[in-house]
Design a protein around this nucleic acid. Structure first.
Lengths: 218, 218
DNA sequence: CCTCCACCAGCAGGATCCGCACCGTGCCCC
DNA sequence: GGGGCACGGTGCGGATCCTGCTGGTGGAGG
């Protein structure tokens, strides 16, 4: 399960992040409104409502607009009733008030995720040129032919396919597919290499020198 | 919207009932476990966990078993963390601790109902390729042949069959069939193994390496 | 009391990934 | 036009991760 942690306090974020990771979740961290809105898709968002560059309630509204099945748990130090009501009205699934215990947070996360499992899935199909990607099924066809990709290959392709025709920086791909930015210089290239091989036409994934890669759109 | 109010304290029940009615809800009242379980179907349950003739947690479990899309808000005077966690684990959608304000309760009711609106309607019959599942009867046939599954095997299959052709992550299966995400890595695999054996054709349940499993659609 | 089911290890075989080294090529500057 | 350099591509071996079995144990239900 992938959790997006939106929290500006670095210490709180670090503590939460490690606690959640220990419990088996995959955690991506965003410290600002901008970062939160440009993060990769996930299953659940832990959203601190007090952010430096804007209001967390806007993030909540926008995320909910994008996906009705995304789980959102608002987190805040403000425990006043007015805020609690506001948070829920915005479309958050749940609300926890600092300070809270990890045990309770864990229970609430599970409750929200359990519910999300029963919501209608948004089956997302991405098409770019001859490439068709079924994100949910994790299957890919090129010009009608089904190709079998490994996990990393698929993740890399997905990172590119999210913005067809756009040059995706290497760092971005690393973040999407690996969750980190530190890795051997060549790791991405290697997987792009095998990806090109499996897609058949190597020109489908174009190299943008000095930047990254681009998935051919037309 | 129809709300079932399970509350043994007559004064609290009367006050809540009239407040909710004023807000436009249709309210049915039950004061005991027996009454709660034999009440007419509704959209949401306000469930006091302390009841004279039994434990409210049993009611919660039973109601949830009957319908995964029913909204349940647990209400209790016991505000301790242990109880909060327990309530959420049982399958309640939310939890309010007495004393609470009507404004907050209203907001939580709306949040739960909003979510329920997005919930996929429960299908009685699910078909995926050669597999036919009767959810209510908990029976399965493969290519006309009836197969007998154990509880967990059925739950695992159901988790997969809810989205045929979609790669279901391991922890989502855990969430659906076990209710939690913490469990031994092998538990799912073992049950998938026996499931494959009983279904006859092992290829019906495809492995998506590094992710989970996928029920063959076509 | 007995049977069946669920769960927990341990194990072995693969698939996958990664780091390294080397090669090819485009770009820039002279 | 030529040379150097930085960047990207590729092949390979080992380490790692993942998965599917099998057997044994505890417990719930009949």
């Amino acid at each position: 399960m992938r959790i997006l942690l939106v929290e500006d306090d670095r210490r709180v974020a670090a503590a939460l992040s490690s606690a959640l990771t220990r419990r088996g979740y995959e955690v991506e961290h965003a410290a600002t409104v901008a970062a939160a809105l440009s993060a990769a898709p996930c299953d659940l968002v832990l959203l601190d409502l007090t952010l430096p560059d804007g209001d967390g309630t806007d993030v909540c509204r926008e995320l909910r607009r994008r996906s009705s099945q995304l789980g959102i748990i608002a987190v805040t130090a403000r425990g006043e009733e007015r805020d609690r009501v506001l948070g829920l009205r915005l479309g958050a699934d749940d609300y926890v008030v600092k300070p809270f215990s990890m045990v309770e947070l864990q229970a609430r996360i599970e409750a929200v995720l359990r519910r999300a499992a029963h919501t209608a899935p948004e089956r997302h199909l991405i098409e770019a040129g001859a490439v068709r990607i079924d994100v949910a099924a994790r299957t890919v066809t090129v010009a009608g032919r089904t190709v079998t990709l490994t996990r990393k290959e698929f993740d890399v392709l997905l990172s590119l396919a999210r913005q067809p025709g756009v040059a995706v920086p290497r760092d971005r791909i690393l973040l999407d597919a690996w969750g980190t930015t530190w890795a051997d210089r060549h790791t991405v290239e290697v997987h792009v290499g095998s990806l090109r091989g499996k897609l058949g036409d190597a020109r489908l994934v174009e190299t943008v020198r000095g930047v990254g890669y681009r998935l051919r759109d037309a």
